[in-house]
Design a protein around this nucleic acid. Structure first.
Length: 563
RNA sequence: CGGAGUGUAGCGCAGCCUGGUUAGCGCACCUGGUUUGGGACCAGGGGGUCGAAGGUUCGAAUCCUUUCACUCCGACCA
């Protein structure tokens, strides 16, 4: 490709909306342009990168016998109603009607559509397992699109679905998919972690997220320094710490604590450690058909992890709760305890069988000490947020918290969808049974941004070998110099014939302008054909180090073919 | 969905408070010339229903009302 013909409008200034490096450089380099909130055009350079990443993903998937399909972007609402997600999915699901008033949705994910495709055609265990995927546009009407391609409303995603006769076979496929995803990220040159994840509302028996490490990531992930344990903060576990015990001088029983509501106030008043107290967290849980107040009890020094709390009570979300509402229920905020509680409540797992706590007395201005969980029949679940410095439950080393961007999520779904959609096959005993399913997503357009988020410098992009739009740019320093131009052109044609993806920067611009563009666009290498040519030399520039190496002009072709 | 902000040329902005001929500036763009190893210089030039609708006024980019779009913080994010 000749740069003089390439549609790549680069700019010197960043658009005011762009904050993250990936967003700034993709816009400045003319890779993408914004159409509307969360919707982007891909210009030629962006399209090449997108296709390259797509091809890597496709190649790796085809290697493990997954088969590519393409489902309709627009899905009839019927299917969504059948699975029950039409109402559950919320406002992210864009619904509309056609001219005949038939209802449709823009596909945000395709479990329903894929099950529908398979259910009438796969009726025997002999046809299983089956792994189908597509790489296609998705639309989710996000409440708040942001960060360019990282969180768009319209985006390109690879979504795959596997069908099995039993859980065992699903587990086998799940591990295979994990390896496949890891191979994809290795080929793209990305540093990543596979982390335990919360399965969320989609349910199923287990899920893992593939996180690319990046400072601007939206997710907090917990990683162990000693072993390969890693988890999303929403699902992270820790080794139960050895808490120092402390008792109030007042002894056990009811203690008058006028107007002392917070953990800090009471712990300093009674001269005890927060870890010897029980904290009550009140939430209003919203379900699809009703709502209720739920109490969560955790150790005074801990923090409630909301996602864990949500899955404990099975609610869709938590809403804020006002002092008035508490008053109406006869609850004194600041004095809530687990004892003889009428409301629905959950207790953190680490508190089970522990004793000697100070907690609220369920009476204004009073706390009780000496409270024991021993032999108390509460519902114990993991509720706490892992903090930096907690210890790993696997190896006991320290846990660190770092930022990541979710680029893939793999689920062992089980039969949730196949049951809901009545999708069954005949097993070895001739009995009808719902498929056991897995689902596997990977954000392709998000990966374009992630490449830059992880690999850039202050001047621009740093594309890896598998993702770069061009392997090499030949920069003609002065196109009016006939020698330079003709040497560059000859080299360009030779390289092209040898199958190298090469760009010839033959624009009538000054040297500095072209170098800056090269740095912004981020191809791995450039050859400068300039004034050195008079003495028989050209230069190779390495984008990463920005080092220039002079080389005899007659040896440049062979040298380039080596790299 | 709650809070804040911005819409004036392709991009970045000034003008608005205090209404007054043809609405400015920088970058980009076009023509000619000089230049050519780090985003050149000189000269000339093109490009705007001032987000939209309505109102006040002799007169609106400017004041008022409504509305739309976009951005940021938060909530949310199979």
């Amino acid at each position: 490709m000749r740069f003089s013909k390439l549609f790549a409008p680069t700019t010197k200034d960043a658009p005011k909306d762009a904050l993250l490096p990936s967003h700034i450089f993709l816009i400045r380099g003319g890779f993408i342009s914004q159409v509307g909130s969360g919707i982007y055009n891909f210009l030629p350079l962006g399209k090449i990168v997108l296709d390259k990443i797509k091809n890597v993903v496709k190649q790796e998937l085809d290697c493990i016998d997954a088969q590519e399909t393409q489902l309709g972007f627009i899905t009839p609402s019927e299917l969504w109603k059948e699975s029950g997600r039409y109402d559950k999915f919320g406002k992210e699901l864009l619904r509309f009607k056609d001219r005949k008033s038939n209802e449709f949705v823009l596909g945000p994910t395709h479990e329903e559509a894929m099950v529908d495709l398979v259910r009438s055609r796969v009726k025997s265990y002999k046809q299983l397992p089956l792994n189908l995927y597509q790489i296609n546009i998705k639309f989710r009407d996000e409440a708040r699109p942001r960060y360019g391609l990282l969180r768009g409303r319209e985006f390109l995603m690879k979504d795959g679905y596997s069908f099995h006769e039993d859980e065992e076979d699903l587990k086998r496929e799940f591990s295979k998919m994990q390896l496949c995803y890891e191979n994809i990220l290795k080929r793209l040159g990305l540093e990543y972690r596979v982390v335990d994840a919360d399965s969320g509302a989609i349910g199923g028996s287990g899920s893992k997220e593939i996180m690319v490490l990046a400072d601007n990531g939206e997710d907090d992930i917990v990683v162990c320094e000693g072993c390969d344990y890693a988890a999303n903060i929403e699902a992270a576990k820790r080794k139960k710490p050895d808490f120092e015990k402390s008792q109030p001088k007042q002894g056990s029983g009811k203690i008058h604590t006028p107007d002392l509501k917070t953990i800090e106030e009471i712990s300093s008043f009674l001269e005890i450690k927060p870890s010897s107290m029980v904290k009550a967290v009140v939430k209003k849980a919203i379900y699809s058909d009703n709502e209720e107040i739920v109490l969560f009890f955790i150790r005074g020094c801990d923090v409630l992890q909301e996602t864990k709390a949500l899955s404990a009570c099975g609610a869709i979300e938590f809403a804020d709760i006002s002092e008035n509402e508490l008053d109406n229920l006869g609850i004194d905020a600041g004095f809530i305890g687990p004892n003889s509680q009428k409301l629905k409540m959950f207790v953190d797992l680490e508190l089970s069988n522990e004793k000697d706590f100070v907690c609220g007395a369920n009476e204004k201005d009073y706390h009780i000490s000496g409270f024991s969980f021993v032999d108390k029949n509460f519902e114990y679940v993991d509720l706490i947020m892992v903090q930096e410095g907690d210890l790993c439950s696997c190896c006991g080393r320290e846990l660190k918290i770092t930022k990541g961007i979710e680029v893939g999520h793999i689920f062992m779904l089980g039969d949730t969808y196949s049951k809901a959609l009545n999708a069954t096959f005949l097993d070895r005993n001739g009995k009808a049974k719902p498929y056991i399913m897995g689902t596997y997503g990977m954000g392709i357009s998000r990966l374009v941004a992630v490449m830059i988020e992880q690999h850039h410098d202050e001047k621009g992009c740093l594309w890896s070998k598998e993702s770069t739009p061009f392997a090499l740019s030949i920069i003609v320093s002065n196109v009016k110099d006939k020698e330079q131009l003709s040497f560059a052109q000859t080299l360009y044609e030779k390289l092209q014939n040898a199958g190298v993806e090469v760009l010839l920067d033959d624009r009538a611009e000054r040297f500095g302008f072209k170098m800056s563009d090269f740095e912004l666009l981020g191809f791995p290498k450039a050859v400068i054909v300039g004034k050195g040519l008079a003495t028989g030399e050209v230069q190779i520039v390495d984008r990463k180090t920005l080092e220039k190496t002079s080389i005899e002009k007659d040896k440049i072709f062979d040298k380039l073919m080596e790299i």
